[in-house]
């Protein structure tokens, strides 16, 4: 197909694969890269990040396979690794691999990725098994609600891999910057968040490479990794006071 070669045609695109443990990330990674990374039908096979380079329609794709995680809350080393790769290496697009037979739990991570603002494509993997179990998806509606493209895939049969790659490259080319999705947490929490965010911005924390609002949300959640890395007493005092006020007001820790 004749195509006008634009600047974006030659640029290197960094694609990161995330998803719950045992959702099929490495199987998809192997199809995308032609590698033979070890896969297993049990969680936790990938414990470090793996990278592969692929040439795809004039694009140099750098594909990164990450360990399986349930959330971006740094509870385990895997979650910490994944979050740091996402925040510090800022991939051009993230493919979140979902286990279609367990969609509710899998979408939790997807919403966290959306909140972080990463350009996102969802791979609805194991879609054949979901169908066999009688689970049906209204892909158009789900995609519209989440504001991300969704591609049904069957990892072990290679189904949907081409479509997935095309969708990822399209998102990477269309998105110039990360766009954080602002979730409205309600007036009480928003007021406190604004206070924290102001101080975070004044102090110019974490070299400004992290979104100030996102950092504020994490401080309010008591995220140990962020708290340790912020190391500014003024900010921590403000966020601790905010947290105490909210706990009193709402009954639960924020």
């Amino acid at each position: 197909m004749a195509q006008a070669r634009t600047k974006s045609d030659q640029k290197e695109i960094k694609i990161a694969l995330t998803g719950n443990p045992n959702s099929g990330k490495t199987t998809i990674f192997n199809h995308l890269t032609g590698f033979h990374q070890r896969v297993g039908n049990y969680p936790g096979v990938t414990v470090e990040k793996k990278e592969g380079l692929v040439l795809y329609e004039g694009h140099h794709l750098q594909i990164v396979d990450l360990p399986g995680i349930y959330s971006l809350t740094p509870y385990s080393p895997e979650e910490l690794i994944t979050r740091r790769v996402l925040l510090e290496e800022k991939p051009d697009v993230v493919i979140d691999v979902l286990d279609a037979t367990n969609i509710e739990r899998n979408l939790y991570l997807a919403t966290q990725l959306k909140e972080l603002g990463v350009p996102l494509v969802l791979a609805l993997n194991m879609s054949d098994e979901a169908r066999a179990q009688g689970i049906q998806f209204d892909l158009q509606k789900l995609s519209a609600l989440l504001g991300v493209p969704i591609v049904p895939t069957v990892g072990h049969k290679r189904e949907g891999i081409g479509e997935l790659l095309a969708a990822a490259v399209e998102v990477a080319n269309a998105t110039r910057d990360w766009r954080e999705v602002k979730i409205n947490y309600g007036r009480d929490i928003e007021t406190e968040l604004e206070n924290i965010q102001r101080v975070v911005e004044e102090e110019g924390l974490l070299n400004g490479s992290y979104d100030a609002r996102w950092v504020s949300v994490k401080l309010l959640e008591g995220d140990q990794d962020i708290i340790e890395r912020v190391r500014a007493d003024r900010v921590l005092t403000v966020s601790e006071e905010a947290s105490r006020r909210l706990q009193k007001l709402l009954g639960d820790p924020p």
């Binding site: 509870y75 367990n102 939790y108 959640e221 008591g222």
Partner: peptide, 12 residues
Amino acid sequence: GQQLQARMLALG
């Protein structure tokens, strides 16, 4: 604590 609650939420 807060950490365990967040973990449980993530596990569904």
